[in-house]
Simulated scan of single mutants.
Amino acid sequence: MLDILYIAMSEHSHKTPPPKSPLKDRHCMRLITWNMNSLRLRLPLLQRLAEEHSPDVICVQETKVPDPLFPKEALAELGFTHQLYKGMKSYNGVAILSRLPLRLREDTPRWCERDDCRHVAAFVETESGPVQIHNFYVPAGGDIPDPDENDKFAHKLSFVDEATQWFRQHPPTRSILVGDLNIAPFENDVWSHKQLLKIVSHTPAETSRLQDWCHAGFQDAMRHQTPEPEKLYTWWSYRNRDWKKSNRGRRLDHIWLTADILPCLQNITVLKEARDWERPSDHVPVMADILL
């Protein structure tokens, strides 16, 4: 089984701050989730993201880098001195990069009895106490939406079923779940509900399962802020030469919050401009500000 690696870089010493009011001076934690489609290839884009938006925590999916080659020093130079990552060569991989102290959650499952680096979880230390973050990269599922004909699709459905059951057995509190879940659950999470009903990522077998998973302790924070029927996308295919003009998007990236911290949500922003950056990912970052 692959190990999850944790790096905590030393930070510059500083004077102890004066006591803070528990309400007036609560910190608004800025969290970003992003499927980068290769961390090392797009490290300059992560640097740009950090400089323009100053996140406290970045959750990355599809890092595509084995642990010995993880660019921990370069990320520490950007201010992410606390790092949890689990990766493999060429495929998958997840990481939590933080300016705030992290503590690994060690009892998470070996999903579908595979070591394919699709989940990492941590407790993040905030001024109001620890908050749990789960970072997921759900299997894409291939092209044929039939589990009998397509092992990849069967794996995807099994993965979501296992995750749903696990969270039902371990009810989350003060928790955030983010990541590329590879499912667009609602009609207006895709450019054409009717045309995509038989396309992997929007089939009823997937969308019903994703909603069951979300209901196992979470609420869909993005749709809490931007209710249906407003269109909401985070992914545009590389096949679309002019992604803005065609706008054939899907909401594959998600931020879920437990009910006890949902009232702390200040804002969620889909950073669409990143789709126009040089050598972009087909996913864009999603940013949440949470008062903790």
Rank of each mutant, 00 (worst) to 15 (best):
D107P: 11
A288Q: 05
G129A: 07
L75F: 09
R275C: 12
H155Y: 15
K245P: 09
L177Q: 04
L210M: 15
N267W: 03
A216W: 06
N35G: 06
F70S: 07
W243Y: 13
R209S: 10
D151K: 14
T164Y: 07
I199M: 07
D161I: 05
V60F: 11
R279P: 02
G87N: 06
I268E: 02
I96N: 01
R239C: 08
V131P: 15
E230C: 09
L75I: 15
V60A: 13
H53M: 08
F153Y: 15
P17T: 02
E52T: 14
E125V: 09
M287R: 03
W34C: 05
L104T: 03
L262W: 01
S54M: 07
H202N: 11
E52H: 15
A221N: 09
D242A: 14
I133A: 01
Q83G: 09
S90D: 15
H134Y: 07
D212H: 14
E228I: 08
Q211V: 14
I7F: 13
K64V: 05
N240A: 15
P130G: 01
R99C: 13
N135H: 03
Y6A: 12
E187G: 13
I144E: 09
S38F: 09
L157R: 11
E51K: 13
N35K: 03
C117N: 06
C117K: 02
R42F: 05
I4R: 00
G79Y: 05
E127I: 09
M287Q: 12
A205K: 14
A95I: 01
L45D: 09
L41E: 07
G217S: 08
N35E: 08
I96G: 02
H134I: 00
S54H: 14
I199Y: 10
K20G: 13
W166P: 12
L197V: 08
W111T: 02
R42H: 08
D143N: 13
P68A: 00
I199W: 03
D242P: 15
P145K: 04
K24R: 13
R105P: 00
H134C: 01
H82E: 13
Q61V: 04
T81W: 02
L177E: 01
H215P: 00
V178Y: 00
A163N: 03
P145Q: 04
L181K: 01
S54D: 14
L232M: 10
S208E: 14
H155T: 12
I183G: 03
P68R: 00
Q83M: 11
P280K: 01
